[in-house]
């Protein structure tokens, strides 16, 4: 059970990481990155680091996402090729 959950989390983590880097729509990339942070927070909790899990959830999934969205709102949404 524990191993299956860990494997699922790692697969999800890698998928979201690759998607966040490759996404052309920057708003989508930011949302995916926020999901990445959320999964990372779960992983920290699985690794018995609740302090880090709290930080990751609050800063990574919460605050930085909003700051990125604000930045996109003020600049451009699409990545240029």
């Amino acid at each position: 059970m524990g191993t299956a959950l860990n494997l699922a989390l790692i697969v999800l983590l890698l998928t979201t990481a690759i998607l966040a880097v490759t996404a052309r729509d920057l708003l989508a990339a930011v949302i995916i990155f926020s999901v990445y942070s959320l999964i990372m927070a779960l992983m920290w909790q699985r690794l018995q680091a609740p302090d880090l899990a709290l930080t990751e959830a609050a800063v990574g999934a919460g605050v930085t996402t909003v700051l990125f969205v604000v930045t996109i709102f003020k600049t451009r949404r699409r990545e240029e090729e």
């Binding site: 930080t55 919460g62 909003v66």
Partner: peptide, 17 residues
């Protein structure tokens, strides 16, 4: 218990957002 200044501060920042 888990948590502390940095985490609590980030949560306050989140509520402000």
């Amino acid at each position: 218990s888990p948590g502390g200044g940095f985490q609590g501060g980030a949560i306050i920042g989140g509520s402000m957002i």
